[in-house]
Design a protein around this nucleic acid. Structure first.
Length: 422
RNA sequence: GUGGCUGUAGCUCAAUGGCAGAGCACUUGACUGUGGAUCAAGUGGUUGUGGGUUCGACCCCCAUCAGCCACCCCA
């Protein structure tokens, strides 16, 4: 044990229970994405560093990506996000694609971060985007998709909330406070983003230290406490009306504190959190005005969000909503009674498989009790006993491991008997 | 990248600087053609790794690796 080489820091191993959970999540994501008519796509896992260097977030590439030279000396990046690849894919076929585009993806990403609970260096992420649309109802559709996903994984609107704000609204409010330059606005957005991470007094002194006046601080506090702020924006009102009609309004809350860190959001921004004390962010997204300009295309608006696969299971566990998953694909085990009957057992298993039934055979001759115990522990529901007595009478014993009931059936009728039980 | 906490059997955890233990799990038996329950016995360890202090280190010191927590960041 001591000599086993460790797995790479921040990676996870998917033993069958974890793999079953991942597949389950992928299934729910597929189901919800398809229910809104979105098509699945994917980009490369390896990208050149230039793709990300074009973006404003320098830290993303320099500090938080896996970058390495290939054998030719080119710097290759393990993709830390999908949006730049998506932008390029759209730009390359900008005039051939049918708009609006509805695409989704679920795949692996890598970020060179310090791992802790809910944060790994290798993770999967669901990305979903509606591109070529610039209206509140389009934004509402993405939020509705997020809400429908929560419904699908059995998280209620009292357990999870999608917090929504609008960058344009915040922009107007900042202008009213005399915050007009780009630098000042950026600075204030990051201050808002940090509101929940500092104590009130620490946060207030942080605002003042950042170069804002005490009048601006008071104004900012008023904005952040104004839960009705959205009513001054016709677009946001339309957005909420659409959510009402989409039947997911109970999941959505207006919150002026949500601004999101990313520079490229230009309208609605949102993030989903659980309502517990720790309140982890489950997914985040928003409306962007110019997706493809930076990779050389014409400006297109869109809206989308991304959800990692690491936090959701923690939330589900917290609320006792982790699904019970069947790990063993076979419901039937055929025992091997003795050497003489071994071939007989194999023939029975083959017959069942030919009828489309998943079957496992105990791989060696062992005490029948041991074989039953094995069946119990791997979660097989029906055990077939085929010993010398049964063979001579051309019958089989079928035991239901849940009820403990056992019945004998004719060998010729075993397929129907099993199918009837299942 | 910065600071802190932790690391002992497969798992959860004990052990004043003085013989490394318990519960669960596992294997076997009680039960010669039937799993779960009960009882009994048994297997299981270079105390994360590498140094140092000491007559003697799971325990103290240094380094390193990993996990967790708070920053940072959150695409």
């Amino acid at each position: 044990m001591k000599n086993i080489i460790q797995s790479v820091k921040g990676t996870r191993e998917f033993y069958p229970p974890e793999m079953a959970l991942r597949k389950w999540m992928y299934g729910k994501i597929t189901e919800v994405s398809h229910s809104f008519g979105y098509q699945e796509y994917d980009g490369p896992f390896l990208e050149s560093i230039e793709l990300y260097a074009a973006k404003s977030g320098e830290e993303l590439v320099k500090e938080q990506s896996f970058v390495f030279p290939d054998r030719g000396g080119n710097l290759i990046t393990l993709r830390p996000e999908l949006t730049p690849s998506l932008a390029r894919m759209i730009a390359q076929r900008q005039n051939q694609l049918v708009y609006p585009i509805r695409w989704w993806s679920f795949g692996p990403f890598w970020r060179y971060e310090k791992p802790q609970k809910g944060r790994t260096r290798e993770f999967f992420q669901w990305n979903i985007d509606l591109i070529g649309v610039d209206c509140p109802e389009g934004d509402a559709e993405l939020v509705a998709i997020a809400a429908e996903f929560f419904k699908a994984v059995n998280l209620t609107s009292s357990e999870v909330k999608i917090l929504v704000n609008d960058r344009r609204l915040m922009d107007q409010q900042m202008v009213k406070l005399g915050v007009t330059s780009m630098d000042q606005k950026k600075s204030m957005l990051s201050i808002i983003d940090r509101r929940d991470k500092l104590s009130v007094t620490d946060w207030e002194s942080y605002v003042l230290e950042s170069g804002f006046t005490s009048e601006q601080l008071d104004g900012l506090k008023a904005i952040l406490n104004d839960k009705e702020l959205y009513k001054s924006s016709p677009e946001v009102m339309r957005f909420f009306n659409a959510l009402e009609a989409l039947g997911v309004a109970d999941y959505v809350v207006y919150d002026p504190r949500v601004v999101r860190g990313l520079d490229y959001y230009t309208g609605i921004v949102f993030e989903a959190r659980d309502v517990s004390e720790s309140s982890r962010a489950i997914l985040g997204g928003g409306h962007y005005g110019n997706l493809v300009e930076e990779v050389g295309g014409d400006s297109i608006a869109g809206v989308g969000f991304a959800m990692g696969d690491v936090v959701l299971p923690l939330i589900l566990e917290e609320f006792g909503k982790l699904p019970e998953l069947v790990l063993n694909p076979a419901k039937v085990l055929v025992t091997v009674f003795n050497a003489e009957c071994h071939a007989y057992s194999l023939k029975i298993a083959t017959k069942l498989r030919e009828a489309g039934i998943n079957v496992l055979v105990y791989p060696e001759i062992a005490k029948i009790g041991k074989q039953f115990k094995y069946a119990d522990r791997v979660g097989v529901q029906y055990v077939i006993v085929a010993g010398p007595d049964e063979r001579d009478q051309e019958i089989l014993q079928i035991k239901d491991m849940q009820s403990g009931e056992q019945s004998s059936v004719k060998i010729s009728e075993v397929v129907e008997a099993i199918k009837k039980l299942m």
